[in-house]
Design a binder for these strands. Structure first.
Length: 278
DNA sequence: TGACAGGTACATG
DNA sequence: CATGTACCTGTC
């Protein structure tokens, strides 16, 4: 399935934006990335800067799952156009990350993934999640014979012995307890996902989960619940706000899409720092 | 050899 | 409420 004339979509930028841990470039296939989500395996091919994107799925599957997953109905250029033209830092960051979109990821996977992300680095987060999936997720083969694994269900992660060997460190007890509570219905994911709760109520609910603090709660809200006013405050964002915004970022100006703005800044700041000549 | 990594729980003042 | 510290572990 090929999509043409796609705007503000760059799969490489999305993969490097730090919001998703199961989207990776395939070393053996140029300009191709692999994504596992919603019980599906998907390859995405896009030449650098191209508005043509190939998806390894049927048009039906694309319309059912991936159009929404990649948030392709939203007008990201519209967000960029509303950036304060006097804000040089943000203008630069948005230009560098104009192909980023906020993915609509599955809530359960997002909960676990960002719980793992605390006091951790992205390569290790990815490795840990991959191990967890390989050990405890349902296995499948692609048509060309590649083995891949779904993200494990709560019931599977509710047993601490199932978590050993995944490299979770001290976070294993957080995952185990949350999985147990989700499996038992004590943590109600349907209630969080149905959209009836206020942002503040969702945040309080998430923060009541053992192992979820302010930052992780906001990551879950933005990436797992598409609450677009959520702004996860990590070390990068805090540093930028301190250095470029005198400690106070104008979130009011970006009401309704502050999370997108945050993502431009985070991605720009972290990629810039991680590159050699930073 | 340690220090560091997209924080959080828990203890204090 | 603001601040301080320990924490698993792979990687440099």
């Amino acid at each position: 399935m090929t999509l043409e004339g796609v705007k503000n979509f760059d799969i490489g930028q999305i993969a490097n934006s730090g919001q998703c841990f199961r989207l990776d470039a395939l070393p053996e296939k140029p300009h191709t990335w692999r994504l596992i989500a919603y019980g599906k395996y998907l390859e995405i091919k896009q030449q650098p800067g191209s508005s043509v994107v190939e998806f390894s799925c049927t048009r039906t599957e694309f319309e059912q799952i991936w159009r929404q997953y990649f948030d392709l109905e939203a007008d990201y250029q519209g967000y960029i156009d509303r950036i304060d033209p006097q804000d040089a830092y943000l203008t630069t960051a948005a230009a560098a990350g104009a192909g980023i979109r906020i993915l609509r990821q599955e809530l359960w996977e997002t909960l676990v993934s960002f719980m793992i992300s605390q006091n951790n680095n992205i390569p290790r987060i990815k490795k840990t999640i991959k191990t967890l999936c390989t050990l405890r997720g349902k296995g499948h083969f692609t048509e060309d014979g590649k083995l891949w694994f779904e993200f494990p269900q709560p019931e599977s992660l509710a047993r601490i012995e199932n978590l050993q060997g995944a490299g979770l460190g001290y976070r294993d007890k957080y995952i185990q307890k949350m999985a147990e509570n989700v499996a038992a219905g004590k943590i109600n994911l349907e209630m969080l996902a149905d959209g009836e709760m206020e942002d503040s109520a969702v945040e309080s609910y998430l923060k009541s989960i053992y192992g979820v603090g302010h930052k992780v709660a906001n990551c879950i809200m933005l990436f797992g619940l598409h609450r677009m006013d959520s702004v996860p405050k990590d070390v990068w964002i805090n540093k930028i706000i301190k250095e470029h915004y005198a400690g106070k970022f104008p979130v009011e100006r970006y009401k309704g899409f502050a999370g997108v703005i945050q993502q431009y800044i985070f991605s720009y700041a972290s990629n810039k720092s991680h590159s050699k000549d930073g």
